[in-house]
Nucleic acid binder design. Structure first.
Lengths: 343, 343
DNA sequence: AGTGTTATGATAGACGGGTTCTTTTGTCTA
DNA sequence: TAGACAAAAGAACCCGTCTATCATAACACT
């Protein structure tokens, strides 16, 4: 059987051996030069470096990884790259990874189908990753029973806590408390809620926060409305509320996009914001899209979340072991869609 | 020197040899089971699989890659994940990669600093990638002189053509032609332009398209305005135009966000859209953020672009070799911010 | 008994980089 | 000129997976 050619012409990538042959030295000397080790004659070093240049040598990632058992990459699994939550997750993790001189190995699962943590883990495990991060934007069917792969750091980005896996997320419950407290201080009590799709984990926690605050204040909560995160769905909901609820003084929309839609709907219905109805959102995501963004909202520190996620997935000496659940608080940003009630 | 333990307790990842030992078979047989080869007794197969389960065996990515010289991942280098163009690129490539059962190795370069293609290539080359994709949203200083690394597919996402590298992009020049033709058909001639930052490659081509159409029709083009892609910058520009240009009948904003800002500015200045001034944008990116999006715009098929990019970066048998420049046309979407002139 | 089939093991080598150990070469000193 | 010592370079081997041979059983079918 024909041995692959010794790279006179061959398509095989250039190895240290090829460089060694070209420079007339041993492969070890090439290694020494490549890694800047001492005890190499200056003349020899030159010769080797020239050979490297000419042959276009690049060290084999596979060979090196095999040797030192590390990949310098962290695996990230999301279902849909474009969703605000996932995007901001990628961004945050990317910058944390960069600080650690690490790449991200990104796998996008099906955008529509439900996916299990086991499946996500299985796919990530076949890739060059030192740690696994799974964005769980909707409840996985095997969340309770899931066991992380031994020997590799695993983090799930979600609000739910897990007994055997570290979870990290922005505090989607706490943001509701911030906003609701703000509205209460302004005298609002009849606060309607426009949520995202009910399968969304973020939605579940944001809604729970809204509901709990009302209950704690002994206010009977009116039925929450369900949107799909889009401005149009917020508009629909806003229209409905403007026409059917005369007692409402404020709307809490579970994201800024829906809040923006709701504001448009209220104004189209002849209601003033914030004079007649106050509106709040979450995410602080409108700036690029809307001129003079005036929405009161909550901003999350997504880079901090990225760092936390990364550092728990790839524990840097010592941090290892403990399973924790980290919730990163948001920050209330008061603009001009909220005002005190008249009463 | 102490040999690493044979994994009674050791932290070394589980290898085939470990599984073989546990199952009391040879490494050969484990390999046969792992790869579903025939000629393995059903009972033995069971035993091996059980051992794999118990030990948590996962085949070494490094070992396998070293062996068969492929990584099943494509490298993607961008400067800022969150920018619309980059995000949509990631999304398109991710879905193309998934179709090929491939992952994406993502490297984010500095968001602010200029980066060279050589630098990007150097970093990507040290990672497990079968191909390299570089998003060049601003002109790289070494674009002209850049030589791709031999032996690895390289694609630059940009409108500029390159003699030695395949480039792919949405047609940021053609989109201007589509929009300008549309406006001309409606009778507009005094069409002002609100562009993105001038260092942006997309901006350069969109503006060139606007300018060329005017010149071709022997219309002296008024000074283009420069924004930063944000709605606020579009608002500023729109305000300025409303106050200083009485002859203008249409505005071409280089993206939807600025268009949206411009519309708000025009209305705040007492001008009606589209009755007094028509407005168009590019990207079709408003839907999620704005209720009842009525903006006439151009939509790009970002998934097609992703596929083209991917398939040229990782040529599937045969496609290899030729350097091409691919421009994917956009699609004009006429909504209700454009109308015929009165005259 | 002879032939073939199936199951498994033993051994080795390829892949590329890096470490460790050993050998060679060169220089300086007594 | 011999001995000491350091610098330079080479040889061997490991990492884990896969494949390619052989070799050796056990078993079935004529």
């Amino acid at each position: 059987m024909a041995r692959r050619p010794s790279n006179d012409t061959g398509s095989r990538p250039v190895s240290m051996a090829d460089v060694a042959r070209a420079a007339g030295v041993s492969q070890q000397t090439v290694s020494r030069v490549a890694n800047g080790l001492p005890n190499v004659n200056e003349q020899t070093r030159q010769r080797v470096q020239t050979a490297m240049q000419e042959l276009g040598f690049r060290p084999s990632y596979a060979g090196r990884s095999l040797r030192d058992g590390r990949y310098h990459s962290v695996g990230l699994c999301v279902n849909d790259v474009t969703k605000f939550g996932n995007l901001s997750m990628i961004d945050g993790i990317a910058s944390a990874a960069r600080e650690h001189n690490c790449a991200i190995t990104l796998v996008e699962m099906s955008k529509t189908e439900e996916f299990s943590l086991a499946e996500a883990t299985r796919r990530m495990a076949a890739l060059p990753v030192d740690g696994i991060i799974i964005g769980m934007s909707r409840m996985a069917p095997d969340f309770e029973t899931f066991d992380p792969l031994p020997g590799i750091g695993t983090v799930i980005v979600t609000m739910y806590a897990h007994p055997r896996v570290t979870t990290v997320d922005s505090d989607h419950y706490g943001c509701s408390l911030l906003l609701m407290d703000h509205l209460f201080e302004l005298g609002h009590e009849q606060i309607r809620y426009i949520g995202g799709p009910s399968f969304s984990v973020d939605e579940q926690f944001r809604r729970a926060g809204w509901q709990d605050v009302l209950e704690r204040n002994h206010i009977e909560s009116a039925e929450p409305l369900e949107g799909d995160w889009s401005a149009n769905s917020g508009y629909e909901a806003g229209r409905y509320l403007a026409e059917h609820d005369r007692t409402m003084t404020a709307i809490y929309a579970a994201n800024d996009q829906m809040a923006n839609g709701a504001i448009a709907a209220l104004r189209d219905s002849g209601l003033r914001v914030p004079e007649d109805v106050s509106v709040v959102g979450v995410d602080d995501s409108l700036d690029d899209f809307v001129a003079h963004n005036e929405l009161t909202t909550v901003r999350f520190d997504l880079h901090q979340r990225g760092r936390e996620v990364f550092e728990h997935a790839v524990p840097e000496a010592g941090t290892a072991g403990k399973t924790v659940a980290i919730r990163i608080p948001g920050q209330l940003i008061i603009r001009h869609t909220t005002a005190a009630t008249h009463a």
